[in-house]
Each structure stands twice: as structure tokens, then as C-alpha cells.
Design a protein around this nucleic acid. Structure first.
Lengths: 160, 160
DNA sequence: TATTGTTATACTCTATAACTATA
DNA sequence: TATAGTTATAGAGTATAACAATA
């Protein structure tokens, strides 16, 4: 098989696998924890941050979100009691998002099923050597893509 | 490195790479052909179908879409002159979507840049052996995920 | 002057249910 | 009875620009 054919195979499999996986994860998180994948991701970022706290802008930068998009999601999470927003002591312009106990519970409720979906869907079909090669290649691809995508700060500069 | 660590590496790289790639593709297609990735994908399905024709339901089944979602997208594409909808001669309930010349032009306008993004973003960092292994693993993962996801017909049965 | 975050607003997309017409 | 497709409608999410407050 020539390289072009292999490339096309890999590309279509990548795109379809991504879309199928996302679908499965959304369904699982909705039924186990009643949150979206993005909300799960945001709770995860906060859960692993020191004291469960992060500045709004830093949280926005760790996703594809505009600041107004994060304001919307933070509003949803706060309404559900999963985070709180408090003023920053250091910089009075800033707002700190803090994960609540209920937020940690919700995250913990979603996590096992989430790992299960990933495990059964992605990794059960690979042996150790294949997994190793996959991790190496995907990491290289991600780093390459990171270097091509405009940074969050840059996106902010161009738009709102 | 143990298997759990490798898994986690591969998973996060996969998710982030998918999201970065999608972002780059959307931007490229919007600027080169003024269409979304989904619309590009639908035009591609029609372009490669015999005579550029497909039944609406078959087109919907080749995506994650509900039928009403496809009706919406078909409306957008038709409004832009990129497809036409005609009644089926075989089954009077059916509607056939046909890609127009303008639709083929638009697809052709988006394709080179699209391939370029994929090539530069994903494959430029892999040698032949890595590409081979990646294609094999992603194909296996996709097939596994396909077997776990409910089919489009099944989704239709449950919901609308 | 630049940065942080929110708000108002408009737009895109998606899904559900009800509906028509045909098989 | 089941299938094909549309429509009405409502909801989730996103982004832009304008804004107030602070640095």
C-alpha cells in the first residue's frame, strides 16, 4: 500500500473515531453525571488545580473558548452549584472559579464511566507495543498542531 | 512507562489533536470555500457518489445527523446553489440530493487547502513505519467504536 | 492604554414531536 | 403499520462588540 493511501486511511479513521468517541462520551456523561463533555473537562481542570481554584481567563485559555463563552458555561455550572465565582484578592479585575464539594462529587460520578468508555472503545483493541506507538505518534501530532494553531491570547487579540 | 500512563498520554493527545485539527479545518474551509466542515463533508459524499446523487436518508446515515438536522443543512446548501433536491423516480416518498456544478466547484476550492492542513498538521511528523502503525491502530479503534455506537437507523427508532 | 470579565445580541446548529404523503 | 421527509419550535452553545472597573 502506498503512502497516500495509508494517509487517507489514517485520516478518515481519525476523524470518524473522534466523532464516535465524542458521541459516546457525551451520552455517558449526560446519563452518569448530567453534564456535557465540556463541563466535565472544566470541572476536571479545576479539580486538579491547587485548592480547586483558577482564574477565569486561565480557564478560558485551556479550552477553545472565548471569554464570553466561558462566562456562559461558568454561569451554567454555578447555577447547578458545581462551582462558585469569587473576587480575586490579588487583582480586583479578576474572578476566581472554585470547584465546590458538589462539583467534585459530580466529577467523581462521571469519571469511572468516562474512563471505561475510553478504555473499552480505544485501548482494548491495542497490544502494548501498538499503544506505545500510538501515544508517541499522537503526541507528536498534537505538538505539531499546537504550534500551528493561534494561541488563546492571540485569538483574543484578533477578536473580542 | 507503564500501560496506564501511556493510555492517558494517548487519550489526551488524541482529544486535543482532534480539537485542534477541527479548528484548523473549519478556519481553512471557511476562508477558502466559505462552508463549514460538515457541509464540505456532505459535498464530498455527494461528489463521490454515482452521478452525484444520494437519497436524503442515506446521506443522513453517513453522518451523526438526525433527519431534521440534514433537512436544515440541505436547505443551507440548496440556498447557496451547491445542491438540488429532486423527487425520487423509484419511491415517491424519497428525495434525492444532487450536487450541482457550483457544488463541485466549491468542493474543489476547499479540497487542496484541506489536504494541506491534514498533511502538514498530522503526517509531516511521521515516517512511513509510524504512519503505517497509526493507520492500523486508528482503523481498529474506529471499527471497535462503530460496533459500540448505536446505528443511525437505531437512533432514528429511539428518537424522532 | 491595556486587561478582566460581563452583558446584549444575533446567529448557527441540533433535536423532538407533530405532520403529510407514500409504501 | 412503517418509512421518508419537512416543519414548528425550543434549547444549547458560540462569538462579536460595547461596556464598566481596575491595572
Amino acid at each position: 500500500m502506498d503512502r497516500a493511501t495509508r494517509r487517507s486511511e489514517a485520516y478518515f479513521a481519525f476523524v470518524e473515531a473522534g466523532s464516535l468517541l465524542q458521541q459516546l462520551m457525551e451520552d455517558q456523561l449526560r446519563s452518569d453525571a448530567n453534564i456535557s463533555y465540556l463541563q466535565f473537562f472544566l470541572l476536571g481542570r479545576l479539580a486538579e488545580a491547587p485548592e480547586g481554584r483558577m482564574r477565569m481567563t486561565d480557564l478560558a485559555d485551556s479550552t477553545v473558548h472565548s471569554r464570553s463563552g466561558l462566562t456562559y458555561q461558568a454561569g451554567q455550572l454555578e447555577k447547578a452549584g458545581l462551582i462558585q465565582r469569587v473576587p480575586s484578592p490579588d487583582d480586583e479585575r479578576s474572578v476566581i472559579a472554585v470547584i465546590t464539594d458538589a462539583g467534585r462529587d459530580t466529577f467523581a460520578r462521571g469519571l469511572p464511566g468516562h474512563l471505561d468508555v475510553v478504555d473499552k472503545g480505544m485501548f482494548s483493541v491495542l497490544d502494548d507495543q501498538q499503544l506505545d506507538a500510538l501515544a508517541t505518534s499522537l503526541t507528536a501530532i498534537r505538538d505539531r498542531l499546537r504550534s500551528q494553531a493561534p494561541s488563546a491570547a492571540q485569538r483574543r487579540k484578533n477578536r473580542g
